[in-house]
Design a protein around this nucleic acid. Structure first.
Length: 803
RNA sequence: GCCGGCGUGGCGGAAUUGGCAGACGCCCGGGACUUAAAAUCCCGUGGGAUUAUAUCCCGUACCGGUUCGACCCCGGUCGCCGGCACCA
């Protein structure tokens, strides 16, 4: 009886050995490969099997790159500032610094169970003053370049988290973190001018090897459009109202104008008769929450009593107010062409406003429109000097025509807004700004960074719009670094995204106390080659990181504009019926027990086997038995054959190359679930050969090498039992023998009238006559005398069509 | 509403992108070993018909099309998931 697979003993042995002698040799002579995980925030709940998946995927890929001969960078750190950590700390009554440190310890223990080859000497923590010193430094640089500025305006406010939020953090009118309805609050805020990078953020997407879905989400979020700003005079008054339109070609069809209720002229345009209704409408709109305004699709509006003049033909059009026009996009005012816009059409129908068609497919009018014709395809009509022109062409030319006539100008617009960067919370990086009564806003001198987050007794959010830091007089009161006058510190902190927007740069030079990152180190090891994480950061973290990187490129800190060359989004692991794992639902599956019962190697492989890595997968504990059985069987196969000295037959040589070829191809395609099934399939085939004539050591070795990134412990153990020295991870990735892969004969299917009727084994390059003859023999009983057609696709199929 | 993605056995999922549908695994059933159980090993396992070692029919959400041949391509319908949601 040979020795059975003992995962506990094997894994314990190699965990200790790898601690002493890490398998990543950091060989500087090899080309670098930087494989990055989205770093976790140290939650008190620890990791569940879903978190494991992403880390396993990145570790498999990292170990593969190592064996392919790279200098591997595979770091890990902690995104430890921010709301989740702070909310937990408040709930438990423990200082966030204390709870964060505890959670880091626990999650690090769990992450080590994965046996991932992280570079722990590169570890970073966003709450470490030596780290956030540079987070603050970046802010100071942005401030100096005018990209960080202070502004008072109504911003998104979460009444539950008691802090302002960025647009990106509001999902369907609700707080991205806690789900509470977001309201508006007028606050003086620090803003980052991400809009200055809108074009570069949009155009940079083209060259990225990212999922199309994520690129599209970012491009939609940036939302660039081309059009014109057109000036309309108000009839009988001095004011001019400027509107933004992407369809200046339809200008002759404008039959009314709508202003957002918040527009600065809204109240002013009311006449005596309309004043009461206008003021009521404005007040009602101001009281509506975001959610109400989003949900109420039925158009409402009020006529101001004033008229605007169409700049092209002087037509008098009524000016309305309606909350379907957004105050903070474009100019907050639009010209309305009901014939060619769905929303304007709906509004005109409801309030009985004339509809003038100006584009027609055939250049003719065919009675009243039943719906808006929104395509820019057709011939202009009812449009004065533009009649007869093609609308598509006019659409691009009109902005310039309007500009030449002095009626407005061509204009690009974006949905992207500047980034609301202040948080009225305690657990974040203090914004390094001093408010001086004489000099205004002054940045904290760089040599005084980090500006330490002071210790406080009360770190609960105040809800007043001020951060808890505002209550610490000794900290707030300071001298102006410019003029020495009594001054006050900024008391808001940065959002959680601040640290995560650049942490990946710090990994490559994490102990540098003079610069964010040494330029030489940055040039050598950056950018990130492979970034692995969930899709939930598609527009948040990933957009912010790209913005930061472009800024740091502009000031010469790094020499590249895009931080992440390739992105992979792993799917979520859910509980039964696709329900998200959560503590409150009690469906969280902890990896700890599974590691104990089945071992790390089995859990790693099952995490991959459970489904395609990019799709969500339902966790089913039972499936792990199959993977465990497979590893046991493979272990037994090796035990049975190690000292058997079975000959290396041509069959085994071919099989070994097929295995290498299959696994490598699937791995390269990131089809990790089929890699695992591939291993199983070949294991079954080898089992049969083993029972008959034995398996040679070379084949076993090849198998062990290929298995190593997936099940590192068992592979390392078997590598040594097969006589290997050093580590299996310093071995080269096997290459398939092309000659052994060439088949001479192949079994192909025979179809009659498209139905499978038999199989023949013939030479791969057999000629048609031979193939057809063989096929007729194999499937003769289905073939009649009346053959209409015979098809032979070499190496694939024969199909005989008969009546 | 708009834009993506998806729909294959009891279940998770394969199918080299137009060429043997259901690989691999789970579950389940039968058998071997055992005093017995667990573990392990072997066999079976899409549905149906039938005179059952054989043979035939149906089958990749649904309807239709292209093709010698369709899970794959085209047109339409339904359903699920995700993103955006008055951005003029």
């Amino acid at each position: 009886m040979s020795e059975a697979y003992n995962h506990a003993e094997i894994e314990e042995r190699w965990t200790k050995e790898w601690e002493k002698n890490p398998v990543n040799p950091y060989d500087e002579t090899k080309p670098k490969y930087y494989c990055l995980d989205m770093f976790p925030y140290p939650s008190a709940n620890g990791l569940h099997v879903g978190h494991w998946r992403g880390y396993v995927i990145s570790d498999v890929w990292s170990r593969y790159m190592l064996m392919k001969g790279h200098y591997l960078i595979h770091p890990m750190g902690w995104d430890a500032f921010g709301l989740p950590a702070e909310n937990y700390a408040i709930k438990m009554g423990i200082h966030p610094a204390v709870s964060t440190a505890e959670n880091v310890k626990n999650i690090k223990r769990q992450i080590n169970q994965i046996a991932a080859i992280y570079d722990w000497d590169r570890e970073v923590n966003t709450t470490d003053p030596e780290f956030y010193r540079w987070t603050q430094w970046i802010f100071v640089q942005m401030f100096k370049k005018g990209l960080a500025y202070e502004k008072e305006m109504p911003i998104n406010w979460c009444p539950s988290c008691k802090t302002g939020l960025a647009n990106e953090e509001v999902v369907n009118g609700k707080c991205e973190r806690c789900g509470a309805d977001v309201t508006k609050k007028n606050l003086k805020q620090w803003m980052l001018k991400i809009t200055a990078y809108a074009d570069r953020l949009l155009e940079g997407l083209d060259g990225l090897d990212w999922p199309e879905k994520v690129k599209k989400m970012q491009s939609d979020w940036i939302g660039r459009s081309y059009g014109a700003e057109v000036d309309f005079k108000v009839d009988g008054r001095d004011e001019t109202i400027t509107v933004y339109t992407t369809r200046p070609d339809t200008l002759f069809g404008a039959t009314f104008m709508v202003l957002a209720p918040e527009h600065e002229l809204s109240a002013d345009l009311a006449t005596e008769e309309t004043r009461e209704a206008v003021e009521k409408y404005i007040a009602d709109a101001a009281n509506k929450s975001n959610v109400d305004r989003l949900q109420n699709k039925e158009k409402t509006g009020v006529f101001t009593g004033s008229y605007a003049l169409n700049p092209l033909n002087g037509a008098k059009i009524p000016i309305w107010l309606s909350d379907y026009v957004l105050a903070d996009y474009g100019t907050g005012a639009i010209m309305c062409v009901p014939a060619h816009d769905d929303r304007d059409f709906e509004f005109a129908k409801k309030f009985d406003i004339p509809i003038i068609q100006v584009i027609s497919k055939d250049g003719k009018e065919h009675g009243e429109l039943t719906e808006a014709y929104t395509a820019a395809e057709g011939i202009m009509i009812n449009s004065g000097e533009w009649n007869g022109m093609e609308s598509a062409k006019l659409k691009t030319e009109a902005p310039h025509i309007i500009e030449k006539k002095g009626l407005g100008h061509a204009k690009k617009n974006y949905k992207l807004r500047d980034w609301v960067f202040s948080r009225q919370r305690y657990w974040g990086e203090p914004i390094p700004i001093i408010h001086c009564p004489k000099c205004g806003c002054v940045s904290v001198p760089e040599e005084e960074l980090p500006l330490l987050l002071p210790d406080v007794e009360k770190y609960e959010p105040t809800g007043t719009g001020e951060s808890p830091l505002a209550a610490i007089d000794s900290w707030v009161n300071c001298k102006c670094p410019e003029c020495g006058a009594d001054a006050k510190r900024e008391t808001n902190t940065m959002p959680q995204w601040a640290g995560s927007s650049w942490y990946f740069l710090r990994y490559v030079d994490n102990k540098n106390d003079r610069e964010l990152v040494n330029r030489e180190q940055a040039d050598k090891y950056l950018p990130v080659d492979m970034y692995i994480g969930g899709v939930e950061h598609a527009v948040l973290h990933l957009l912010y990181s790209r913005f930061y990187t472009k800024f740091l490129y502009d000031i010469g800190v790094v020499g590249f504009e895009e931080p992440f060359k390739k992105l992979f989004n792993q799917g979520m692991v859910t509980g039964k019926n696709g329900v998200k794992m959560s503590k409150s639902l009690g469906n969280v599956i902890s990896p700890d027990d599974l590691v104990r019962d089945y071992g790390c190697d089995s859990l790693r492989m099952y995490e991959l086997f459970v489904g395609p890595p990019e799709l969500d997968s339902e966790w089913d504990d039972r499936g792990i038995d199959g993977v465990y059985r497979f590893l046991s069987k493979f272990w037994n196969l090796c035990m049975d054959n190690i000292d058997r000295n079975a000959p290396e037959t041509p069959e085994l040589k071919t099989l070994r190359s097929q295995l290498t070829d299959t696994i490598t191809k699937r791995l390269n395609a990131f089809s990790l679930n089929t890699v695992v099934s591939g291993f199983m399939e070949f294991n079954n085939r080898l089992g049969k050969i083993s029972a008959e004539s034995g398996v040679d050591r070379e084949t076993l070795k090849t198998y062990v090498f290929l298995l190593a990134p997936f099940a590192p412990h068992i592979a390392e153990e078997l590598f040594h039992r097969l006589g290997g020295t050093g580590s299996v991870f310093s071995q080269s990735w096997p290459e398939a023998d092309a000659a052994a892969l060439v088949e001479e004969t192949r079994e192909i299917a025979v179809q009659v009238n498209g139905k499978m009727r038999g199989k023949i084994t013939i030479a791969v390059d057999a000629d048609e006559a031979t193939a057809i003859a063989a096929a007729k023999e194999a499937a003769g009983k289905w073939i009649t005398d009346n053959i209409i057609k015979q098809i032979y696709v070499p190496g694939k199929i024969v199909n005989i069509v008969c009546k």
